[in-house]
Nucleic acid binder design. Structure first.
Length: 150
DNA sequence: GCCAACGTTGGC
DNA sequence: GCCAACGTTGGC
């Protein structure tokens, strides 16, 4: 089983939104590297739900992959903010997965605090700040869950 | 709101 | 294939 971190802006879709919906498609990813990581996801993979562009930003909750990758239909919907003229139903360019709500962390973990933890220093989160879907090592995942629930 | 980092586009 | 211009992300 793999572990991931996925970013979303809570103003549009946060951990509370996912809690209400229970399962939701992770649409709107328009970055090839992030898309390619979603293609590696399996049902049951664990996900850290990260709030970006937030006050403060940080890890807010846990989710898991509920459905493996399939075409992101918002990419060929002209009315969608995620529309991409290069993507069609016949030749989709962008993909999404479904994620299922697992829990909201008892302790929200702000980015600034995570950055100060030596054991987490190698996380991609700090080196590739703009990557919205990224793999997380199990030891990092485990520590974050422990801190978040401790 | 600012701006640094960085991914993408397009001219050559 | 290079790289400048441009657009977006995301922290602060």
């Amino acid at each position: 089983m793999k572990h991931w971190l996925m970013k979303s802006e809570p103003d549009s879709f946060g951990i509370d939104t996912l809690k209400k919906k229970r399962v939701a498609p992770w649409d709107g990813v328009r970055n090839y590297q992030a898309r390619n990581f979603m293609r590696e996801m399996a049902v049951g993979d664990r996900v850290l739900f990260y709030h970006s562009n937030a006050e403060p930003s940080g890890v807010a909750g846990l989710a898991k992959v509920a459905r493996t990758v399939y075409p992101d239909h918002t990419s060929w919907d002209p009315k969608s903010p995620y529309f991409d003229a290069a993507s069609t139903p016949e030749k989709p360019r962008w993909d999404m997965v479904d994620v299922r709500y697992v829990s909201t962390l008892k302790n929200f973990l702000p980015l600034g605090e995570l950055r100060d933890i030596a054991e987490l220093a190698e996380m991609l989160l700090f080196q590739r700040s703009r990557l919205s879907v990224q793999p997380v090592e199990q030891r990092h995942y485990d520590l974050i869950v422990k801190l978040g629930n401790g």
